[in-house]
């Protein structure tokens, strides 16, 4: 049905009359949008949209950005953030925006970067234009304390008193992953293939924390807030281990040592599956969901974990994810688990 329908769509589109958008999930949900390019109303003389779409951008000056193209992109970025995020989450963004500088420098490609953001200087350097939105999100989530010498950028935290060569901070991997999630979500920019794994993990974590909460914590540069959210379900040492495992995978020199990467992936997956199961169990214990919903949500989350994982284009096969999950359900006394397994004895 899919390919036949796409052929029909191509023919209709040639006439520019209307185009039936058939998303790949359409057969499951059976809902279609029919885009109508022909406007069948008379000339419009007045338009009224809800207030949130009419926000003024008076506070945006961008005086330190001289390049016209960069200025336009920064302005576009600003408008999207103001439209989509609550004001209380944008304090860092407003503090950094008008002092931001953006430069072009092809040489940074030599260190494998399409772009980079320097939190101490609040400056972006770009070699690949597609990287700019990613770097702007770093700017929007940056908080730098000169007093204690700590820089917070999204979920990354680093003491500036320590050498960058030996210590890149905690939360780097998760931060890069979630920055990619937001960059793609709001700007449809291509994602860096070297952050594919981190992006997938960040999405899985967002499912647990919730989109609004996770975005708020990210923009506030609040790693400790994220840790506190996870402490509802897991002890702090397990959470720190989870975060540093992602950092390990993110570190360039580790990407080619497969045993360490494989074990880290396993630990990360185990953590996420356990936290999600505990969250659902809590909801069940509080009467918010029934056992059927617990099982459905539980299985839906498990299905997002592939047994073939790609880290920096290297493939890793994880064979025992389902078995691992069974053990987790047993350990946490998941609803329905003990009953089913007692009956099977």
């Amino acid at each position: 049905m899919g390919s036949e329908l796409h052929e029909i769509i191509k023919l209709i589109d040639l006439f520019g009359i209307y185009f039936v958008v058939v998303p790949y999930l359409a057969n499951r949900f059976g809902h279609y949008f029919r885009i109508k390019k022909i406007y069948n109303h008379k000339k419009i003389i007045k338009v009224s949209v809800p207030p949130k779409y009419k926000k003024k951008y008076d506070n945006i000056e961008l005086n330190k950005i001289n390049n016209k193209t960069f200025k336009e992109v920064a302005l576009e970025f600003s408008k999207v953030l103001i439209e989509h995020f609550p004001e209380e989450a944008l304090t860092n963004f407003y503090n950094n925006l008008n002092e931001l500088t953006i430069k072009n420098n092809k040489l940074i490609v030599l260190i494998g970067a399409g772009g980079c953001y320097a939190p101490l200087n609040n400056s972006i350097t770009i070699s690949d234009f597609d990287a700019i939105y990613h770097e702007l999100f770093h700017m929007a989530s940056r908080l730098y304390s000169k007093v204690d010498g700590v820089s917070y950028v999204g979920f990354k935290q680093r003491s500036t008193k320590l050498s960058k060569i030996t210590y890149n901070g905690i939360g780097t991997g998760l931060n890069e992953g979630y920055t990619e999630v937001l960059t793609y979500r709001y700007f449809k920019s291509k994602t860096y293939s070297s952050y594919e794994f981190e992006t997938d993990i960040a999405r899985k974590l967002e499912t647990i924390i919730g989109t609004d909460k996770m975005t708020e914590l990210y923009l506030k540069g609040d790693l400790s807030g994220l840790i506190n959210e996870l402490k509802k379900y897991m002890p702090e040492d397990e959470i720190i281990k989870f975060i540093t495992r992602i950092d390990l995978i993110n570190a360039y020199e580790i990407k080619h040592k497969s045993i360490i990467v494989r074990e880290s992936i396993f630990d990360i997956y185990e953590f996420l599956l356990k936290v999600n199961a505990l969250k659902l169990k809590k909801q069940y214990d509080e009467g918010l969901i029934d056992i059927s919903t617990f099982k459905n949500l539980s299985n839906d989350y498990l299905k997002t974990f592939e047994d073939r994982v790609y880290v920096s284009l290297n493939e890793y096969e994880l064979k025992n994810i389902k078995e691992m999950y069974e053990i987790i359900l047993k350990d946490i006394n998941a609803p329905g688990y003990i009953e089913n397994h007692s009956n099977s004895k």
Binding site: H41, I44, V47, S48, V49, Y53
Partner: peptide
């Protein structure tokens, strides 16, 4: 969220907003 338009005959038209985005500095 509702979009309201008034045409040249003074008719008020109401629509339900699905999404809004910015592209090349246009809304």
């Amino acid at each position: 969220e509702k979009l309201k338009l008034i045409d040249e005959d003074g008719n008020e038209l109401e629509y339900r907003i699905l999404s809004m985005f910015i592209y090349n500095n246009k809304n």
